[in-house]
Amino acid sequence: MLASCGYAKTGAESGESATLATDGAAFQVAEMATFAEPWAIEFAPGTPILFVTEQAGTMKFLDTASGTVGTVSGLPEVAYGGQGGLGDIAFLASEASAELGRRTIYLSWAEAGADDTRGAVVGKGTLVCAEAEACAIEGLDVIWRQTPKVTGRGHYSHRISISPDGEYLYIASGERQKMQPSQDTSNTLGTIVRLNLDGTPAAGNPMADKGGVTAEIWSYGHRNILGMDWDAEGRLWEVEHGPAGGDELNLVQRGANYGWPIRSNGEHYNGDPIPDHSADDGFAQPVISWTPVIAPGDMILYSGEMFGAWQGQALIAGLSTQALVRVAIEGDSAREVARHEFDRRLRSVEQGPDGAIWIAEDGEDGRVLKLTPQ
């Protein structure tokens, strides 16, 4: 039950460890379960059940009230390898009062195509939990495909976020390490798409009149988005990987172009320069840019009562930084306020029904950790 963390240790109870950030905020960390390459964690609304995707194509759940770990069947075949595999999970908040027995579930994954190509997809199905230790997904149908499928195994992004009004799906579509497609709106690489709940392009999208996949696009010029969430004002924020330097936190605006690969506050991995963002470059500017990078794996905007001082802050799971990065958002600006260091890469972060913070570590034997105030 011991989950070791960085920073100064405080007097935690047996089976837990405590961490103290540089701003004096302390919390306890408890190990709750272990999974194989966990990628996304998501509570089914109105329940204590935490669902976990495992990148190789399996899915499990943790009953956080009883400690029971169960399996989920009915998963799709995934193109596993590199950054690809089974991805994100999303549920409808409107079904919070429904029994866990049957509810809508959205999943993303990497799908193989012809000629050694791959692309992200999102499917919609019905989650049926008829047993304490087993659930099944029925009628899982693909409702969206990243266009086009390309070679390689990186930058799928495929994070899913449902708008606060419960009407629209927002899907992060990475540029698949191809760069230039991010500036070409005839495809959906390097974009955020906005869809109806059935996967069709939503009315009011900025290029809806152009038809085809262009009608799906909400914003473009992105690189590799791995976290999206909504603030109390109903605004969408995202965090994405830069190249060598230049990770970004962005406030997502309708029709905005975020500049990749024409502008970045990083440089190419071979050292070739990329012009930095500037106020007059015509692109949407990052609210925060990190060099050295934080290597974000996921992000939430915290809204709970348990960590009251953190309300409205972004909590970013760091991969290479092995840290939970806290960012205070103030209007249209933001600033990093603390880093809580862990001893492994952090892949995903989620807020529990009671306001506790849940983190999934990256990699084989990735632990799911629960954070509560000391």
Rank of each mutant, 00 (worst) to 15 (best):
W290Q: 06
A33E: 08
A112W: 02
I262L: 13
Y80C: 08
E37F: 01
Q322P: 01
Q311W: 11
Q183W: 01
M179A: 10
A334E: 11
R102Y: 07
L195V: 12
A18W: 02
A114P: 02
G119R: 02
F51S: 03
L20P: 00
A244G: 01
E99M: 08
A279P: 09
Y7Q: 14
F51M: 10
G212Q: 09
P292Q: 15
I105D: 00
A36M: 03
K60E: 11
A8V: 14
D365H: 13
D272W: 10
L86W: 06
G304M: 04
G174M: 02
G70L: 04
D365G: 11
G119W: 00
D23F: 01
Q351M: 15
T200Y: 07
V142I: 15
H155G: 02
D198T: 12
G70T: 06
I359Q: 01
V69G: 09
D365C: 06
R335T: 15
C129I: 06
H222R: 05
S97E: 13
H340W: 15
A114E: 15
D198Y: 11
N265C: 11
G211A: 11
F283D: 12
V78M: 03
L127T: 03
P38L: 03
S108F: 08
A232Q: 13
A232C: 06
G331I: 09
L169Y: 00
T188C: 09
Y220T: 09
T126L: 04
G123C: 03
A360M: 11
G271E: 15
A18V: 03
I329H: 01
A30S: 15
T372Q: 10
G246Y: 01
A284M: 11
S108Q: 06
L100G: 10
S348C: 14
G87S: 08
G366F: 05
K149P: 10
D63P: 07
S186R: 08
G119L: 03
G304Y: 12
V287K: 11
N270G: 15
R339D: 15
G245F: 08
Y269E: 09
T214V: 08
K210L: 15
P243Y: 02
I160T: 04
N196W: 07
L195R: 04
S157G: 04
E330I: 04
L62G: 06
Y7P: 08
R145W: 03
P275A: 14
Q177M: 10
Y106W: 07
D165M: 05
G67E: 14
A30P: 04
F342G: 05
P148W: 09
V193D: 02
M32F: 11
L195P: 04
H241D: 07
P148N: 12
Q183T: 00
S278C: 09
G246V: 11
S182D: 00
L50F: 12
C135Q: 05
E336Y: 10
A79V: 06
R145I: 08
E238T: 05
L251W: 05
H277Q: 12
Y7S: 14
H222F: 06
E364D: 15
V337C: 12
A132C: 05
G318A: 06
G174W: 01
